[in-house]
């Protein structure tokens, strides 16, 4: 099971773009770790304006935090994160400095 928790700032990622982003996250992640794209879970957490900060200033950063099955080689993990970053920047128009991507081993239990 692969899960993504996407924390976005209000007004930064249009709502009508989110299904496409979720679909791409499912496609990319299962391409690297296997599994069925239909079983990838993508959750959205929208932070209201004035509730998210970075460096003490209002944030425009999106955080895409993936939980993947344990054991992925680091080289492959980096390729996965890079692919997600490239896709997200392409679809949203954000810069590298407005995006955090992680691919963490899932902790069972």
């Amino acid at each position: 099971m692969i899960t993504f928790n996407c924390t976005i700032q209000e007004g930064i990622v249009p709502e009508d773009l989110r299904p496409r982003l979720a679909s791409e996250l499912a496609r990319i992640s299962t391409g690297f770790v296997g599994g069925n794209p239909d079983e990838v879970s993508v959750n959205w957490i929208e932070i209201p304006h004035g509730f998210g900060f970075r460096g003490g200033r209002l944030s425009t950063t999106s955080a895409v935090r993936g939980e993947i099955p344990p054991g992925l080689q680091q080289e492959t993990r980096v390729e996965l994160m890079q692919s997600i970053q490239d896709m997200w920047m392409d679809l949203t128009g954000c810069t590298t400095d407005e995006l955090v991507v992680s691919a963490r081993d899932r902790r069972d239990g």
Binding site: T7, I47, F51, G52, F53, R54, G55, G56, S59, T61, A63, D97, V100
Partner: peptide, 23 residues
């Protein structure tokens, strides 16, 4: 958020722009 940024960076030396605080 500013206090957390000051404290974290003072303790760890991390760049300020990397400290995210969400309420």
């Amino acid at each position: 958020a500013l206090a957390f940024t000051d404290i974290h960076c003072g303790s760890t030396g991390a760049p300020r722009s990397f400290v995210s605080v969400t309420f």
